[in-house]
């Protein structure tokens, strides 16, 4: 695309995509490594999950600060198009978040281990965040179709 210049929000979306992929992959690797020596539902996961979520939030805060500093005052401006893209991306990803919550609810009703419930919720958060950032990037690059 000859004339595509990343807006502030699009830079944050790209960063968010990388953060989501990295912290999801790290958490999954830690979980699978631990699960090699114990049955899956007995695998310790709480510390890894909390570290993963905490690190993800911290990474996004640092990313926002770095992008703000490097972008310059004029480039930080956002407008109605940014708001519409954010709203459309959140709307698109909401279904995945709801599906994760419904799956966790069903597991709870079936009295499954907390391990599965927590990890299904985590998966819902992760997939929803991924879909949201991918949708945002697609809308920034490909254009915003009418509803």
């Amino acid at each position: 695309m000859a004339e595509h210049q990343l807006s502030f929000e699009e830079k944050i979306a790209w960063g968010g995509l990388i953060v989501a992929i990295v912290h999801g992959t790290v958490y999954l690797s830690v979980l699978l490594t631990r699960a090699a020596s114990t049955p899956m539902p007995e695998t310790p996961y709480v510390d890894a999950l909390l570290w993963s979520l905490g690190a993800g939030i911290l990474a996004m805060i640092i990313l926002s600060i770095v992008v703000s500093i490097t972008t310059g005052e004029e480039g930080r401006a956002t407008d109605i198009r940014d708001k519409q893209i954010t709203a459309r991306a959140e709307f698109t990803a909401r279904g995945v978040l709801v599906a994760g919550a419904l799956a966790a609810m069903i597991l709870a009703m079936l009295e499954q281990d907390g391990f599965w419930i927590a990890n299904v919720l985590y998966l819902g958060f992760m997939l929803s965040a991924l879909l949201e950032t991918v949708t945002k990037i697609a809308l920034y690059r490909g254009g915003v179709p009418a509803w």
Partner: peptide
């Protein structure tokens, strides 16, 4: 609006 929005409008995006 932002310059990116003017670009997007000009390009029909």
């Amino acid at each position: 609006v932002t310059r990116q929005t003017i670009i997007a409008i000009e390009q029909g995006k």
